[in-house]
Simulated assay, not measured.
Amino acid sequence: MPARDEITYFGAGPASLPTTVLQNASSAILNFQNTGLGLAEHSHRSALSHGILASTESSLRTLLSIPEDYTVLFMQGGGTTQFSAVVYNLLGYWARMDYVVTGGWSQKGSEEARRLFGEEKVNVVTDSRKVFGRYCGIEEEKGWKRTEGEERVFTYYCDNETVDGVEFPGFPRSLEGGVVVADMSSNILSRRVDVSKFHVIFAGAQKNIGITGLTIVVLKSSILQIQPTPGTLRALGLPVPPVMMSYPSLAKHNSLYNTLPIFDVWIAGEVMKELVAAGGLAKQEEVANRKAERLYAALGRAPGIFKVVPLEGARSRMNICVRAHPAELEGVFLRGAEERGLLGLKGHRSVGGIRISNYNSITEASVDKLVQYIDEFVQKNA
């Protein structure tokens, strides 16, 4: 049985966590702060739990420089639940929805919006599959077909597509000043973000923040004040959101409308504290970029064997998607990687191939180990 330090897990999620956080968690789950109870056993309404919520939110606000007029919510249901929650909370005021579809997750978000509110409410601004034949890039913004003549519209995009390895290099210029929603589930806390450009940012925790079971939502507080009443929604022929998806309801109760998994919040807080102590997102962005550059450089040294799937300019720093040629080499590469303790490199089941997830918990030493294996593999199979 291998020791933990002999394994590097490059899986796309649930992702690996810092060993120090897990070591602290192992004692916290048995006896938290000498209370005689494990953290998972404490009431979510206790002073202890309220302290964890406040501390975690404080770290998040520090890392993202969240403005005071923004609210932080801790929710459940993962990013997928937010596909529904976003439209439930926004469509009563903003009458139309623009979706930028650049991969599988934004595609699913747009499909859920159509399912709930109908085709006539949803406009696909761009669909990368129609532009490039597959999800491998982001169309130039001058080609986007945004809703015109309607001020009450919000735009939704996924900042990083884990399945397809496509990431926005920065905030889309054409969306400046608009009402913007972003799914940052797989690249949040990996680089600096100007939160003030967004009305809603959401992220499932299990990539860069913590463990499965927690979703973080950062939203402009003014949204909470302009929500139509259930009676108004019914008069407009719009559905009333389930209470567990209602941003105002959760904000009113400090994310504690029901039993929140405080252990999950604490894990996220511990991860965030380490990021703050290490220099914040300016430092983490530098590290993430450096790791990604090393990996892309190694793959680029063997164009006859490895082909990076996404186009340059849209390549993700977090999820590096590759195909090997001939295709049989993919299995050979994956088996060899496992023998070296490099796990989780198989591509998503919908697209196959190889996927290297370069989340914050992946150290530079682990990247160097993988780069060395890539170089050795190329020399052996060239």
Rank of each mutant, 00 (worst) to 15 (best):
E41V: 06
S43G: 10
R45D: 14
R45T: 13
S46M: 08
L48W: 03
S49V: 02
I52V: 11
I52M: 03
A54D: 10
A54F: 01
T56I: 01
S58Q: 15
T62S: 09
L64E: 04
L64A: 03
L64H: 06
L64V: 06
E68C: 11
D69P: 11
Y70A: 03
Y70N: 09
V72F: 00
V72D: 02
Q76I: 03
G77S: 00
G77H: 00
G78D: 00
T80Q: 10
A85Y: 02
Y88L: 00
Y88S: 01
L90K: 02
G92K: 02
Y93M: 04
W94M: 01
W94N: 09
A95G: 00
D98F: 07
D98Y: 06
D98G: 06
D98S: 07
V101L: 02
T102F: 00
G103I: 01
G103C: 00
S106R: 04
S106N: 04
E111Q: 13
R114M: 12
R114C: 11
R114V: 15
L116A: 03
L116M: 05
E119V: 11
V122W: 11
N123C: 10
N123P: 09
N123D: 07
V124N: 09
V125T: 15
D127H: 15
S128W: 02
S128G: 14
R129G: 14
R129N: 14
K130Y: 09
G133Q: 08
R134T: 14
R134I: 11
R134W: 05
C136V: 15
I138L: 08
E140S: 15
E141G: 08
K142S: 15
W144Q: 11
K145E: 14
T147C: 05
E148G: 07
E150M: 06
V153P: 04
Y156P: 06
Y157V: 07
D159N: 15
E161A: 08
E161M: 12
V163M: 05
E167T: 02
F168P: 07
F168K: 02
P169S: 04
P169E: 08
G170L: 01
F171H: 07
P172Y: 10
R173W: 11
S174E: 14
S174N: 10
L175P: 08
E176D: 12
E176G: 05
G177W: 12
G178V: 09
V181D: 10
V181W: 04
A182W: 10
D183V: 05
